[in-house]
């Protein structure tokens, strides 16, 4: 009968565990409707579905809980459970991650980029660096190519001469655009629109969803697809939080995360097209141009020495990261071409 009792209690425990509900917080810095927000909400949907509603994810958009650097710290402190760390911003904490800011590392083929981010060894090495900083990386997603906007077609480095280009605050990005001959500046994101309008800056660079959401196209004449680098995000969590979850819940999280890869690819191709259409409709005179292989080659050549700056900045590990990434890309090329 003691055995029976033990079984009963065990049953009860199991049942209690099933009843436990989770309320987690996911904060990001992008306004609703953008890439981060859409993926975060899809994550919320999948988690709820897989857990039969036991996991409730609360999404805080638009930097309500802090800027991107604040949010990474809040994940580490366990105040929030999830955040998208963009490689540019997280570089102040995980310097190696800035490798993704380098121009012309990736070929244009998006399938290949996605494969490298999902299965590559370079990303795996980077994850180790995240863990050293008290963060648990769950996935690395491509939110789309960075697109240049300007009032003239930026087709060759000589178009960049004296051109005031707004970039994110990062030494590598500044060096990239300096290498093209531009005069890079780091206007705060919220002031980019008015600075473009008042000609304080001549152009800026962002994924298409940001250009559409922030209405930068209203005050620019050209969108230039140079395929210099994709805007890469790492979904991070808190290791203490994650490891303390029951195994079945951890499994649900892992499975949900892996579904974000195909979702984000779909989202990107669908919404990027829609956003382009919307921009064309709202501003028919806008010119959207794609650089040719020959045009890109000139930029690629000038961007090359910045790799050395990166290695100087982060040391041997930077070299290893770039080598691994190179191998990953070669491997992927064999698979896809």
């Amino acid at each position: 009968s003691t055995q029976e009792k033990a079984k009963e209690t065990q049953g009860e425990v199991e049942e209690v565990q099933k009843e436990v509900t989770y309320e987690w917080k996911f904060a990001h810095e992008e306004q609703p409707g953008g890439f981060m927000d859409s993926v975060a909400n899809e994550f919320k949907r999948i988690l709820a579905e897989k857990s039969n509603g036991r996991i409730k994810l609360q999404v805080y958009p638009a930097g309500q809980l802090g800027n991107s650097k604040d949010l990474v710290e809040l994940v580490r402190q366990g105040t929030i459970q999830f955040n998208f760390a963009s490689t540019g911003h997280v570089g102040t904490l995980v310097p190696e991650a800035q490798g993704f800011l380098l121009h012309y590392l990736f070929p244009k083929n998006e399938k290949l980029v996605n494969d490298v981010l999902e299965n590559g060894e370079a990303v795996e090495m980077l994850y180790g660096k995240f863990r050293d900083k008290g963060l648990e990386p769950l996935a690395t997603l491509n939110s789309g190519w960075q697109i240049w906007t300007a009032n003239k077609p930026l087709r060759s480095p000589k178009d960049f001469e004296g051109f005031k280009m707004r970039t994110m605050t990062s030494r590598l990005l500044l060096d990239d655009y300096k290498a093209y001959g531009a005069n890079p500046t780091t206007t705060p994101y919220s002031e980019v629109y008015s600075s473009l309008q008042l000609d304080m800056i001549d152009g800026q660079v962002n994924p298409i969803s940001c250009i559409a959401n922030m209405k930068f196209y209203e005050v620019q004449k050209y969108l230039v697809k140079a395929h210099s680098n994709p805007f890469i995000l790492t979904l991070i969590s808190n290791p203490k939080f994650f490891n303390s979850l029951p195994k079945d819940i951890q499994k649900i999280v892992r499975e949900s995360v892996s579904e974000l890869y195909p979702y984000s690819t779909q989202w990107r191709s669908k919404f990027n097209k829609e956003m382009e259409k919307k921009i064309r409709k709202e501003k028919p005179e806008i010119k959207i141009i794609s650089l040719t292989k020959e045009e890109k080659a000139k930029f690629r050549k000038l961007a090359k020495p910045v790799k050395e700056t990166y290695i100087d900045m982060v040391g041997e590990d930077g070299k290893t990261f770039l080598n691994l990434l190179d191998q990953d890309i070669k491997k992927a090329k064999k698979q896809f071409n």
Partner: peptide, 17 residues
């Protein structure tokens, strides 16, 4: 102390935060 431990730096001058 936490910031020092995890070694956050500033984005362009790379000064310890």
């Amino acid at each position: 102390l936490e910031t020092k431990h995890f070694g956050r730096v500033t984005p362009t001058l790379m000064v310890p935060f």
